[in-house]
């Protein structure tokens, strides 16, 4: 794989593909970790949306435990969506995105690293917080593994699809609402299989099938989404 890039053309300054990936990942993680508030905002949002349901519907435990799989997944989905706009925004504003597109590095790898950095600070964080919040919604204990695994497999797909929307709207001043309009229909399969996995885990049914489908979606997204993100970034930045 690495030969493909280093030997294909003697372009000056081209990095080894693995080093490029790690360097982009480290840069994006470091930049995000410096802005603490943006880091915790999706988590706070997640917690707040969850709080709204007992207040708005019913605090009764039997009812909430039935609602919990769907509510947890919808809230996680919305929290990811909320953080999506920031993915390329600051890079676009300070011009580093344009530099990135002009550089001889393969865009696919750079984009993948960026999405991974974004996911590890939103999707992964949400997954780690989810059991705590599931307890507040009276999700039965046997549902926890299903919840964790489905979020772990599903949220990267959400980040990948969301990044397409973010890349398409990065040149627009008011991208926030538009992203949700573009991306939410694409999130439907992940939501269906994710909440079904939790539901199956709660009722004691096998979850492997659901997780396999989520994994298939993730594999599909990993292969194709970076191409779309790259094309969208080129269009947005040159336009």
């Amino acid at each position: 794989m690495s030969d493909l890039y280093t030997n294909s053309g003697p372009v000056a300054g081209q990095l080894h593909i693995g080093r490029l990936f790690v360097a982009t990942l480290r840069r994006d993680l470091m930049l995000s970790l410096r802005r603490k508030s943006e880091l915790v905002n999706p988590l706070i949002f997640f917690l707040m949306v969850i709080t709204l349901f007992p207040l708005g519907v019913s605090p009764e435990s039997g009812f909430l435990s039935q609602l919990a799989p769907g509510v947890l997944w919808v809230a996680a989905l919305l929290a990811t969506l909320l953080s999506m706009d920031a993915l390329f925004r600051s890079d676009f504003e300070d011009g580093s995105l344009e530099q990135l597109l002009l550089s001889p590095q393969p865009l696919y790898v750079v984009v993948l690293a960026k999405v991974l950095a974004h996911w590890s600070l939103t999707g992964l964080a949400l997954t780690l917080v989810a059991p705590l919040i599931a307890v507040m919604l009276f999700l039965p204990a046997q549902g926890m593994p299903g919840l964790l695994l489905s979020l772990l497999l599903g949220t990267p797909t959400l980040s990948l699809f969301g990044a397409i929307g973010a890349a398409l709207t990065v040149g627009l001043r008011k991208g926030g609402v538009l992203i949700s309009l573009l991306v939410l229909p694409l999130y439907i399969p992940v939501l269906i299989f994710g909440s079904a996995a939790v539901q199956a885990a709660v009722t004691g049914l096998p979850v492997a099938g659901h997780l396999a489908l989520l994994g298939a979606l993730l594999a599909f997204g990993l292969v194709l989404a970076p191409l779309a993100i790259g094309a969208a970034l080129r269009i947005s930045v040159s336009g």
Binding site: I164, L168, G171, L178, P185, L186, I188, P189, A232, G239
Partner: peptide, 29 residues
């Protein structure tokens, strides 16, 4: 998306990417 982007050619390209992503996803959905 098409009406949000001012430049006509950029709007057309961005819309095409979105439509293609949608087309790939329609069977899955």
């Amino acid at each position: 998306l098409n009406s949000a982007i001012e430049s006509e050619s950029t709007a057309a390209q961005a819309t095409a990417v979105l439509a293609l992503v949608g087309l790939v996803n329609i069977p899955i959905i």
